[in-house]
Design a binder for these strands. Structure first.
Lengths: 361, 361
DNA sequence: TCTTCAATTGTAAGCGCATACATTAAGAGA
DNA sequence: TCTCTTAATGTATGCGCTTACAATTGAAGA
């Protein structure tokens, strides 16, 4: 790791000025071919790697986009990594119920979309998880490193976002469009739920429905609930004729809520505001020997991969997560190109995906 | 997006010099409390966010670590993101066989580990997918921006890595330790497979085994195969007494190989060098009505989450992916602290996880 | 009160690159 | 061959920050 060569070294070696070296790298067309080749040769020989810090400073933009997603520190112990030789291999029985790692998938796909789109547009992608304690430091830290920031809804306090947004474009992902100054990218929550609910109410002819909503502070959830209400109206049903409960978007919450429902009721369909809740509901139904879809129809929302592996497989509304990631980057670059744009809002189309838990009629 | 304030603005507003502003941010203890408060107040009022580019240039380190993972561009269409209002929602039947998105999980966990460890140590994390072998991509996108680089094995050509390694520490993830100058972090492939194979050979008393290896260019695979051979020796079996085939680590490859095996053979156990292959094998066995584990035992390697959802659930050797990510960052920071370290190699312990496809005896 | 020395703060010099502007080389036209 | 125009290259400056070193301050000791 010798001292890294700089433009000066390359310039000297190839007998040109640093400006020419810079040009060869930045706008090769402006340099005569002969010169360019000499410079490039020197670059290779010296193992020159341009310093992004210097470039960013001079050009006043880093060409990096930041992606902020929810944290998950609980899962990882604080102990240092030890390099213990793994020569003794324990043999264990797997008794897990596979209820973990669902949300991860969501983020993973968003990340992939963002990564792809960023790359295509010539940006690098920096990621950070919102760790409770030091969130503020983290956000400003990353804000100083990037040209724009995409944040998963509800992972960063608005006040902090506003602070950051004074400097760089901020786009909020997967939270509904609120009337604020941020750009928003989200899926078509309302219409998605409405379509699915209509399928249940009309195609399946179900009247006896329970809806399990999510946390009240989730804008996505609010839209989905609203979509459900629209569907009720579409079928001429009074809201008082159905039961609407709240849960918390988790599988455990879904289980608890299902238990609560079954204590007094046996609806023909249970519509859940997200997949994890629905999976929890399925758990309870199976455990009690209630057949899905014969006795009860169950639906979710999101399209997480666990829903494809459940038994029965889960009917859901699929959000285009990869596209969400791409759209977020798109929104940021659009604003970078034209900072005076009005706050915009991208709503990506969703799909109702029918599987066994609520099959095609 | 007004012009961002700089140290000069903060200095002027708080009536100190820029050096003091810098100190307040970098080493607050060196500044009198009274002064510090004034400066911090100015920071907040102005909405100051330090420029990482300038800091990186001055400090000669970026405090960013790069993570390079395998590409996947094929999956995403090139079409631009359109902000079409998603008001019409199609209803589709899901006929996918869920054979996608398995590898993603692997990477996702590594990422989480890396992310956590990086921020804990005061580094930001930059991610990039390996696209082709474009040198410009690696060099200009990542190498110039980071203090160190973690690369998933086989995603970047060695030659390129060598080039980059002249400047910054490079650690290779999940490829076996080769005798090169890079640092390596990997799981205990050999002992893991050996333990699992011994369980099959000795505890289950199986003699009639087929082993499905992976691609020859995978160092992980080579170690696993070697572990399998060790197990044969442990049981006093000649290598000629078992059948060893090669596949390609994919689910489809597993299916094809299983078909090939069954054409001539009906072994009591099929050991696969990774989970995806094993899942493909399960597909074929189920389709032919061959019972697992009653007729055939099947095992995998990796511990991907799909293996927990398969029917029957898959016995496997679980790699600590989160820990791999953490260890990679650890290795990089260790080398940053002491560049003269000998090339090191971290081998993380694995676990044999028994599930129904090869249950506890 | 006058020193002395440590604690604070200020001054100034880059870090490596991009780029406006100045300079020079190279063709084109006569 | 000489001038004019354009292409190619060089010169010089500054991006915003860290940090060695200088200057100043202030409290303790004489």
């Amino acid at each position: 790791m010798a001292k890294a060569p700089t433009v000066y070294d390359v310039a000297e070696r190839s007998g040109v000025s640093i400006a020419t070296v810079s040009r060869v790298l930045r706008s090769p067309a402006a340099v005569r071919e002969h010169t360019r080749e000499r410079v490039l040769a020197a670059v290779t020989e010296l193992g020159y790697v341009p310093s992004a810090a210097a470039r960013g400073l001079a050009a006043r933009r880093t060409n990096v986009i930041g992606l902020f997603f929810p944290g998950h520190d609980e899962t990882v112990p604080d102990q240092p990594v030890d390099s213990a030789r793994g020569d003794t291999v324990p043999i264990v029985d797997d008794d897990s119920d596979a209820s973990s790692d669902t949300e991860n998938l969501y983020f993973d796909e968003v990340l992939r979309g963002a990564e792809i789109e960023a790359w295509r547009r010539g940006f690098a992608l920096m990621v950070a998880a919102g760790r409770g304690s030091s969130r503020e430091a983290l956000v400003t830290d990353i804000a100083g490193r990037v040209d724009g920031l995409a944040v998963l809804a509800r992972t960063v306090p608005d006040e902090l976002l506003t602070y950051v947004a004074r400097r760089i474009p901020v786009v909020i992902l997967a939270g509904a469009q609120r009337a604020d100054d941020f750009d928003h990218v989200s899926a078509s929550n309302g219409p998605g739920m409405r379509t699915l609910a209509n399928y249940v109410l009309q195609d399946h002819g179900v009247r006896d429905v329970v809806y399990i909503a999510g946390p009240t502070d989730s804008p996505d959830d609010a839209e989905r609930l609203s979509g459900f209400r629209d569907a009720l109206a579409d079928s001429g049903l009074a809201e008082s004729s159905v039961r609407i409960l709240r849960s918390d978007f988790t599988r455990d919450g879904g289980r608890a809520t299902a238990a609560r429902i079954l204590a007094t009721d046996r609806p023909r369909a249970i519509l859940c505001s997200n997949d994890e809740t629905a999976l929890g509901v399925l758990d309870v139904l199976e455990q009690r020997g209630i057949r899905v879809p014969d006795d009860v129809l169950v639906t979710g929302f999101d399209g997480i991969s666990a829903g494809r592996h459940s038994r029965p497989r889960l009917t859901t509304v699929h959000q285009p997560m990869v596209e969400l990631g791409r759209a977020a980057v798109h929104a940021i670059t659009a604003r970078l190109d034209d900072p005076n744009l009005e706050p915009q809002s991208f709503t990506l189309p969703v799909e109702v995906v029918l599987r066994e838990s609520c099959p095609r009629v």
